[in-house]
Amino acid sequence: MKAQQIPRLFCVADYQNENFYCAPKHQRVQSSLAIREKTSNSFHSMIPPQKPQLKSNDEQSYRTREGFQRVKTDSNMPMPLRNGRNLSITSGITSILSNKTIQLPSKIENPQMVNAYKNEIVTYMKDRSCKSIFKMTAFQFQTEITEKMRSILLDWLVDVHHKFKLDPETLFLTISIVDRVLELHQIPKSKFQLYGVAALFIASKYEEVYSVPHVRDLVYVCDNAYPKEEILEAEGKIISILSFDLLTTSPYRLLNVYQETAKLDLKNLMLSRYLIELSLLEYSMIQYSNNVLASAAIYLVHKIRRIHPSWSQDQMVSITGLNEIDIRTCAKEMCNLLQGQDKKQFNSLRKKFSLPKYLEVSKIRIEKRPSQNLQTLQY
C-alpha cells in the first residue's frame, strides 16, 4: 500500500521565493493555514491520540486523575491564534482550568485596591496629556513639506492602517511619530512617504501582537517606490531622531477611560472616535492636548445627541479636570470639521466610518446655520 503523502509545510525558504508574494496577503495566509490544517489532520488520522499512563502519585498531584487533556493543535485554534505565535501551552493551561484543578476567585476580593491602581493610571495619563507635546513649528522648519502634503500622507496612512486591520492605537502613535519628526528633522519631499510608512512600521511593532506588517508588504503598498533596505534605514533614523522615546498618551486611550463615566453607548462611542480621528488629519488641532481632544469629543457628542447634562460638573469635571469653558473652543472646531467632511478632498476616514462595523457614524449630517452654536446642534 502506497504511503500517504503529507504536504510540505512552508518554511523560511518559501518566503524568499518571489512567486510567493505575487498573491495578496490574505490569500498567502489562507493557503499557509490550509496546508498546516491538512497536515495536522493527516497526522491525527495516522496516529490516533492515546491516553498516557501516570507513573507516580507525584504526577497525579498536579495533573488530572483522568489523564492528560489533548492539547489543541493549530488546526483547532481560532484564526487569530493561528496567525500568531504557537499558544499550545496556553491551550493546555485552559484545559487544566476547565477541569477546576486551579480555583480562581469569581470576583475581586479588594475592589478598593483595583480602584486605587485605576486612579493612579488615569492620573498619570492626564499628567502626560495636560499640554500638547507639539510646538506648532513644523512647517516653519520644513523647506519642502507643506501642510497639504501632511494631510495627503496621513489620509493614505489611514487607508493602509485600515487595510492591514491594525489596532486603533497604532494609527494614533503613527501620526504622533510623523508630527514629532516633522518638528525635529527636515524631510525631503521625495522621502516623505518613506518616513510615513516607516513610522507605521515602528508603531505596529510597539502596539501590535499578531498583525505587524511584513517589510515586503510595506514595499508593496508603496508601489515599490522604496526598497526594503530604505524602509529599514528610515526606521532606524526615526528612532534615532526621537532618541527611542516612543511612549505617548493618545486621545483614544483617554476616550476609553472617560466613556464609562460619560455612559456612552456604542454608537456615541464610535461617533466620538470619528471626531478625534478627524482631528488627527487637521494640523491646527495638534495645539490641543489629548485630554482636551477626548473631552471635547464627548462634549460634542452629548450636544449632538441632546444628552443632558452635556458636561456633568460632578462626574466629568472630576475625572478630566476640565471645565466646560476649557473644551468649548476645541468642540467648535471639531464641529466645523464634521460639517465640512463632504467638501474635503481626503475621504479615507469618511469611508472607513461609513462601514457597518463603525455603525455608519460618518453618514451623520449636521446642518450649518448662520446663527449656529453648540446649543442648537442636532442630526
Results as ranks from 00 to 15, higher is better:
Ala34Cys: 09
Asn41Ser: 07
Glu18Leu: 11
Tyr21Pro: 01
Ser31Asn: 13
Phe10Asn: 01
Gln30Cys: 07
Gln53Asn: 12
Arg8Glu: 08
Arg36His: 03
Lys38Ile: 08
Ser56Ala: 08
Ala13Ile: 02
Ile47His: 02
Gln60Val: 13
Ser56Phe: 13
Pro49His: 04
Phe10His: 07
Asp58Gln: 11
Thr39Trp: 02
Arg28Leu: 05
Asn19Val: 09
Asn17Phe: 01
Lys38Ala: 12
Glu59Phe: 07
Tyr15Glu: 13
Ala23Glu: 14
Lys38Arg: 11
Pro52Glu: 15
Lys25Phe: 00
Asp14Cys: 13
His26Thr: 14
Gln50His: 10
Gln30Glu: 11
Gln16Asn: 12
Ala13Gln: 02
Asp58Ile: 09
Phe10Gln: 04
Asn57Ser: 10
Thr39Pro: 00
Tyr21Arg: 09
His44Cys: 10
Leu9Arg: 14
Arg36Lys: 12
Gln50Met: 09
Asn57Thr: 12
Arg36Ala: 01
Val29Cys: 09
Asn57Arg: 10
Lys25Ser: 06
Gln30Thr: 09
Leu54Phe: 13
Phe20Lys: 02
Gln60Leu: 15
Gln16Gly: 08
Gln60Trp: 13
Gln53Thr: 13
Asn19Gln: 11
Ala23Val: 15
Val12Glu: 08
His44Met: 10
Thr39Met: 04
Pro24Asn: 15
Pro24Asp: 14
Asp58Phe: 15
Ile35Gln: 00
Gln50Trp: 06
Leu54Glu: 02
Ala23Arg: 14
Leu33Ile: 08
Glu18Pro: 05
Arg8Cys: 03
Val29Tyr: 06
Phe20Trp: 10
Pro48Tyr: 00
Gln53Arg: 12
Ala34Tyr: 05
Lys55Ala: 06
Asn41Cys: 08
Leu33Ser: 03
Tyr15Phe: 10
His44Lys: 11
Arg36Ile: 00
Ile47Pro: 00
Leu9Phe: 05
Asn41Ile: 04
Gln53Ile: 11
Phe20Ala: 07
Ser45Lys: 12
Tyr15Cys: 05
Arg36Tyr: 01
Met46Val: 09
Pro48Thr: 01
Leu33Cys: 03
Arg36Phe: 00
Cys22Lys: 12
Thr39Ala: 05
Ser40Gln: 12
Asp58Glu: 14
Ser40Met: 07
Pro24Ile: 14
Asn17Gly: 04
Lys55Trp: 06
Ser32Ile: 07
Gln60Ala: 14
Ala13Cys: 01
Ala34Asp: 10
Leu33Met: 06
Ser32Pro: 00
Cys11Pro: 01
Ser40Cys: 13
Phe20Ile: 06
Ile47Phe: 12
Arg8His: 04
Pro52Ala: 15
Gln50Phe: 09
Ala23Asp: 14
Pro24Gln: 15
Asp14Gln: 07
Val29Asn: 05
Pro52Arg: 15
Ser45Val: 07
Asp58Gly: 08
Gln16Val: 00
Lys25Leu: 05
Pro52Cys: 13
Arg8Gln: 14
Glu37Gly: 01
Tyr15Asp: 07
Ser32Gly: 06
Lys51Trp: 12
Lys38Val: 11
Ser32His: 07
Gln53Trp: 05
Asn17His: 04
His26Gln: 15
Gln50Asp: 06
